[in-house]
């Protein structure tokens, strides 16, 4: 198969970027999108050019490292897959493919197609954890967890933190990410204790980092490679409201020596 590629090239974080056109030929329909880009880079290296920088790691859809905004959609045209699981058979021979980096104020471009997604790590650091050591794997049913809660928590925990939700959102909001991270901990007994504080801290951190607001277009859900539902955003909203309106006031003990 032959393709015309229009790829965003940007030397560094401050340089001005632009779309550059390349041609690749004799690509197998069974090659992955990254194998196609590898072929392009080999071609560029051979001809003394500068290879295109892009993020990738496991190449099996679980690490959340790959990104790419392909023809106006994060992770390309397929539903429920990451860019690394996309194959060239999903395109037509002779297609022109536009490849851009994720774009958001909170995701500054480092080079070409690579963006800095450490903003998502900062949100996790703000509250996406359980503070106490909860021990090893307990015997079955020592801690009662209703089946449907365990399922919902697992569904939310499927988030790989790739940032496609932010990339797809017309407001560059991270609501689906934060909603998933808040949900998967709050639904389980170990995470419930800190649930109120967690949602307040994570939302405050998200706002500070410059992510947008939610206008419920649900583009995030449509593009999430792990099928995270916007029900998690509603749960976050509900918990945030409850945390602000109903949570107990903290008892301050003054100890004078």
């Amino acid at each position: 198969m032959n393709f015309t590629l229009k790829i965003w090239r940007q030397k560094n974080a401050v340089a001005k970027g632009e779309m550059v056109t390349y041609a690749v030929s004799e690509i197998s329909p069974d090659s992955s999108f990254f194998e196609m880009l590898d072929a392009l880079n080999q071609q560029l290296i051979t001809s003394g050019g500068d290879p295109v920088a892009f993020d990738h790691d496991c190449r099996e859809g679980i690490c959340g490292t790959c990104s790419l905004y392909i023809n106006g959609r994060p992770h390309g045209p397929l539903k429920g897959v990451t860019t690394c699981q996309l194959h060239m058979r999903s395109f037509k021979d002779g297609d022109t493919i536009h490849i851009e980096p994720w774009r958001a104020k909170a995701f500054p471009i480092i080079r070409d197609l690579i963006v800095d997604r450490s903003a998502l790590d900062k949100i996790i650091q703000a509250g996406g954890y359980v503070s106490v050591h909860t021990g090893g794997v307990p015997d079955a049913n020592t801690i009662p967890v209703p089946h449907e809660k365990a399922e919902s928590a697992m569904d939310a925990a499927a988030c790989i933190g790739c940032g496609a939700c932010v990339a797809a959102c017309s407001n560059a909001a991270a609501m689906l990410f934060v909603g998933a991270k808040v949900s998967h901990l709050a639904l389980l007994p170990q995470g419930k204790v800190e649930a109120a504080k967690r949602v307040q801290k994570m939302v405050a951190c998200m706002d500070e980092l410059g992510f947008g607001n939610c206008s419920n277009t649900y583009a995030c859900e449509a593009e999430c490679p792990k099928g995270i539902s916007v029900v998690n955003i509603a749960r976050m909203n509900r918990q945030f409201l409850a945390a602000n309106l109903l949570s107990e006031r903290e008892k301050v003990v003054n100890i004078s020596l």
């Binding site: 851009e100 909170a106 797809a168 947008g212 449509a222 593009e223």
Partner: peptide, 23 residues
């Protein structure tokens, strides 16, 4: 605030499926 959250826009506009009229 939403506009400010994406200072540089995409070259190809978004093609993601959204709730009707939500944009």
């Amino acid at each position: 605030q939403n506009k400010a959250a994406r200072p540089s826009t995409y070259v190809v506009s978004n093609h993601s499926a959204t709730a009707p009229f939500s944009k």
